[in-house]
Design a protein around this nucleic acid. Structure first.
Length: 424
RNA sequence: GGAGAGAUGGCAGAGUGGUCGAAUGCACCGGUCUUGAAAACCGGCAAGGAUGCAAGUCCUUCCAGGGUUCGAAUCCCUGUCUCUCCGCCA
């Protein structure tokens, strides 16, 4: 959500920054609407003042005539106020509706570009293995070993769902535990278990609503929606709160299932664990002082990198260009891992600094009790890591010529002594 | 699912029709005292918005949405959430 005062004082800058996302100018329309709203608001407040003062004049000692006069005057004002209030609300709602659908302003650091083609590879880490046997993709390997069962999955739920069995399920669980452990003990994130159904207000807060409802699953129970990422509940922890600034930064981590309709992805990544309606993910969320959020972001990326290093999987850092940046983000770095089956790097994590965009939307503020200052803290989120996709990478990178998959050293303690899965 | 109680400032907690944006305590901030600190004492301390150079003035908000009333934190209705008891249940 954008600060109307900022738009007023910097309208051409505002439009220029939006243009980086290939979005046309908005400020003129917004400011016009805002002025209309203000005009109505002033009138409304004037009438309210009148009404209040009339009520204050009321006293049982007044004579009948005076009392009747006040009553009828107030009734008249109330009627007028009703209309005016409706009009004011209408303007305000219209303005809000527009503001809620405008994406975050991109940071100066973000490279300008149209699509993912213009993203910038910052660095590549780890050596890509080129074994001298024929590499299989994860679906081939896992289905052959009865570890991934699409007959069962489609019977239960249709396409874009998976059933993971026996040692593959164990490996999934091992990854979750490994990642949460390291986030808690090495990186000082607070471990949380959170609802996977949330109210629409939460989704508006983080930016999925109102614009992207098609990507989400909604239930027919109250106003509850399945979360597309744990970013939603974790970031909304402090919605409509004023946080004591000495408590910042706040760091939370959680494993949840994530649910996405994949509405616009027909035909994309149709096989395997790559793109599913339900997938597991460990998420990191930080709430930071505005002047420290970029440093916090670097720290967050290092946390995710550490996991990939410990898993010993080749990866690269990609700086998203303005045209590929997510709605709520001001600056995003993706982490992509090598997937031998596709001979491509694919995204397993996306770390974003949303600055004050989400905190404004959810009215999350911080207060410095020394100075009395109240301000919007910055929010950051990053995956650490999407389990389904990192599984693909592990399976494909650790596959052996004999069709088995060896277990990364770091996970062996989490695997009940299993050092290899699949049969020869 | 049945019966009952409740939701007030950062927290605790008073307030049942006007003088209430709201007592009091704690926390927090400033000061006095002290070599320093603590204690004690004095003062300050909700948020959002409009207007104004500013001081200030005004509007809104006591879970949310409706209603009654000249006037609502307070009365009525609906919803949400919390707690207690009973039933059921992983």
């Amino acid at each position: 959500m954008h600060d109307i005062k900022f738009i007023k004082d910097n309208s051409s800058l505002f439009d220029a920054i939006l243009k980086k996302r290939n979005i046309s100018s908005h400020s003129k329309e917004i400011l016009f609407l805002h002025q209309e709203y203000l005009d109505n608001l002033k009138k409304t407040q004037g009438l309210q003042e009148k009404k209040n003062s009339l009520s204050k004049m009321f006293s049982p000692k007044l004579n009948q005539k005076e009392i009747e006069k006040i009553k009828s005057d107030v009734t008249k004002i109330k009627k007028e106020l009703d209309e005016l209030k409706n009009k004011t609300d209408e303007k305000k709602n219209k303005l809000n509706q527009i503001l809620l659908e405008i994406p975050n302003l991109v940071d100066d650091k973000v490279p300008i570009g149209k699509s993912e083609i213009d993203n910038i590879i910052i660095k590549e880490v780890g050596k890509i293995n080129k074994p001298d046997f024929k590499i299989k993709n994860h679906v081939e390997i896992l289905e052959k070993n009865n570890l991934l069962d699409y007959n069962k999955a489609s019977k239960l739920s249709g396409s874009r769902f998976s059933v993971l069995r026996s040692s593959l399920a164990t490996l999934h669980r091992a990854l979750v535990n490994f990642m949460i452990d390291i986030n808690v003990t090495e990186f000082q994130y607070e471990e949380c278990i959170v609802p996977e159904l949330v109210k629409s207000d939460c989704l508006t807060g983080t930016g999925q609503l109102p614009k992207f409802d098609e990507d989400l699953f909604r239930t027919n129970f109250n106003d509850l929606w399945l979360i597309p990422t744990a970013e939603v509940p974790l970031t909304n922890f402090h919605r409509e709160e004023i946080i004591d600034s000495t408590k910042l930064p706040l760091r939370y981590t959680s494993f949840t299932n994530c649910f996405r309709s994949e509405a616009g992805a027909a035909g994309k990544d149709t096989k395997g664990l790559m793109r599913e309606h339900q997938f597991g993910k460990v998420e990191l969320v930080s709430i930071a002082e505005p002047n420290k959020s970029m440093a916090e972001m670097e720290r967050m990326i290092e946390c995710v990198e550490m996991i990939l290093k410990k898993l010993n999987i080749p990866y690269r850092l990609v700086e998203l260009c303005s045209g590929d940046l997510g709605f709520s983000s001001a600056y995003t770095i993706d982490l992509e891992v090598w997937m031998p089956g596709q001979k491509k790097f694919r995204e397993v994590s996306s770390c974003s600094n949303c600055k004050d965009f989400q905190s404004r939307r959810m009215k999350m503020r911080a207060k410095n009790h020394g100075t009395g200052e109240i301000y919007y803290p910055h929010t950051l989120n990053g995956s650490s890591i999407a389990i389904g996709r990192i599984l693909i990478s592990i399976i494909e990178n650790y596959q052996q010529e004999n069709g088995t998959i060896s277990i990364p050293d770091i996970l062996k303690n989490y695997m009940k002594g299993i050092t290899s899965i699949g049969s020869k």
